[in-house]
Amino acid sequence: MDEDLAEELRAAIGDFVRRVRLHDRMPRGQAAVLGHLDRTGPLSIADLARREHVKHQTMTRTVHLLHDRALVMLSPDEQDRRRQVVTITESGRRTLDDERRHRASGIARAIRDDLDDDEREVVRRIPEILAKLRP
């Protein structure tokens, strides 16, 4: 019973995330990098690659795309000058905030337009309930 419910929940969340991402304006990998930097502060390219489970070369490309758009700044690591430290810029933070607002506004519109009052009440509780689920 619990396993069936868990599978239904996993599938529903996966479908929801995929539908939300259809409307993203920024590639997922780039948004993820900005999100990591926004939440944790400066990180090395290697640390970002580990967090995203991608190869160092892939992350280097992503970081350089963000750097070309002035969304991140690169600087040498103080302890190891061979390593690059990536820092989100104010422009990067504004871009990330805009992307987050865009995602949230699409979800808010669907909540308003597609759900009845009872369903909206259930949705209000979902973040709190999901926070309790720690697989």
Rank of each mutant, 00 (worst) to 15 (best):
T58D: 04
L48T: 04
E78V: 15
T58V: 12
A70T: 14
V85A: 08
D47S: 09
V85D: 01
R69S: 14
P76C: 05
K55L: 10
T58H: 08
R61E: 08
V86I: 03
V72I: 04
L74Q: 04
T62A: 12
R50W: 05
M59T: 08
I45M: 03
D80K: 07
A49V: 00
Q79W: 09
L71V: 02
H56Q: 13
Q84D: 10
L66A: 03
M73T: 15
M59H: 00
D68N: 12
I45P: 00
P76V: 06
A49N: 01
A49K: 02
E52H: 15
S75Y: 01
R82Y: 02
R61L: 15
R82I: 04
A46M: 07
R83M: 09
R83I: 07
Q84M: 11
R69T: 05
E52T: 09
R82T: 13
R61Y: 11
T58P: 00
R51T: 00
D47C: 07
P76K: 08
D80H: 09
R81N: 11
V54G: 01
H53T: 13
M73I: 12
V86R: 01
H53Q: 11
R83V: 13
Q79N: 15
V54S: 02
Q57V: 12
V63E: 00
H56R: 15
E78H: 10
R83L: 11
M73H: 15
H53K: 14
R61K: 11
V63F: 00
Q79S: 14
H56M: 12
Q84H: 10
R82H: 11
R82E: 14
T58R: 09
E78T: 14
A70F: 12
R51F: 03
R61N: 14
V54K: 03
R50Y: 06
S75M: 13
S75W: 05
H56C: 05
Q79C: 08
H67N: 13
L65R: 15
V86W: 01
K55G: 15
V54D: 03
I45D: 01
R82S: 15
I45S: 02
T60F: 10
Q79T: 13
R69F: 05
H56D: 06
D68R: 13
R83P: 01
R82Q: 08
A46C: 01
T60Q: 12
M73C: 14
A70G: 07
L65G: 06
M59L: 12
S75D: 10
T58A: 10
H64T: 07
M73P: 00
L71R: 10
R50Q: 11
T62V: 10
L48Y: 06
K55D: 12
V54A: 05
Q57N: 04
V72S: 04
R82G: 08
D80W: 01
D68Y: 01
T60V: 11
V54Y: 05
V63Y: 00
H67C: 02
H67L: 10
L71P: 02
Q57T: 14
D68W: 00
I45R: 06
R61V: 12
Q57A: 12
T62D: 07
M59C: 12
